[in-house]
Design a protein around this nucleic acid. Sequence first.
DNA 1: CCTACCGATCGGTAGG
DNA 2: CCTACCGATCGGTAGG
Lengths: 210, 210
Amino acid sequence: MNEERQSGPADVKRRIIEEATRLFGTQGFDGTSIQAIADAVGIRKPSLLYHFASKEALREAAVESLLIHWKNELPGLLTAHISGYDRFSSSLTAAVEFFLEDTNRARLTVREMLDRPETAHARMKEHLSPWTTLLTDYIRMGQESGTIKADVDPASYIIQVMVMVIGTVAIGDIVAALVLPGGGDSMEAKVSELVRICRESLFSSPRKPA
Amino acid sequence: MNEERQSGPADVKRRIIEEATRLFGTQGFDGTSIQAIADAVGIRKPSLLYHFASKEALREAAVESLLIHWKNELPGLLTAHISGYDRFSSSLTAAVEFFLEDTNRARLTVREMLDRPETAHARMKEHLSPWTTLLTDYIRMGQESGTIKADVDPASYIIQVMVMVIGTVAIGDIVAALVLPGGGDSMEAKVSELVRICRESLFSSPRKPA
DNA sequence: CCTACCGATCGGTAGG
DNA sequence: CCTACCGATCGGTAGG
């Protein structure tokens, strides 16, 4: 009747999702067998299928878990700080570093976008569009008050920032090979250049207005 | 003994690579069977394996073909025009539109970066690093003459531009869903915003110096 | 370029 | 959560 020792069934489910996210992210959905996931968790294949009725159900659970994670963490990280030229840099840096903490999640996200465009489209919209609307409004307000360049297209700007953030985390290391003799500069340099590009193409002047 | 009618063997190889690029790009390497590729071409599976000894050999041929295409077309498109503030925009627009012409190639490229980081790293470096070096040098020269912002990190800047270009083509439509109520603005708007972001974060002043 | 065929692995089920 | 098992499909080969 003890209820705290060892791994409860909820813990097993969590570990399955963890390993699935890692393997789907690095090798892709079709490139990962449920056998391989079961091996990584340390259980047999039919045991995994007791927790998730099908491989497809596991995929959906992994993506859902990923989106919930972002939905819970990102808005607080961003909305609390986006309120001026200086804070813009630090909050965008924090957001990129948040994604960098778990590269597998970023890779799985990109793979989902490639593998199932319509489904990914619908699900991301459902979870994330509420707070991207906030960002769009913030840009429009900045344009009215003159702190943000008038020729910024708010929606397209946010799309490009997201493409840069997720792209840098998912494939930045490989793209870096095209440019650098050594084979890749530090991720730090890429992140600070990303922030610089976003900042200088958004605000009206290099110094914040009074 | 006629040699121009119907499809020669070289033509069949070309069509196999075409269909493989399309299917690998949309469904992934592991998500595409050689049976499916043979069906799309209109031949039997063992016939396909006569032209390419293995599925892996076909993958390599498809990626090689893609890189050769870019290597042949891009340098002329870029180096001829990157020589000032105005031409920068038109040549970057042309480059993005070049990628947009064949979305499958962009998707296959991103998938290769995710599926086989080291191999993709090495092969892209081999084919493309010579002319990215030219771009880096161009930025450094602009910094010395004052037309380009001093705080630009040339290598990281080029990486971010490439991430934006390839990311916009491969997953721009899906990311757009996060932002727009309608479900995605026109690709045109995304491209012109991409160009604006790259331009305004690169040059020293909004008007080109004399 | 084809027919015929192979061993291995896939996702999933039966039954406990 | 396990053992035992299934039909389907996979990449690839033999032989012509």
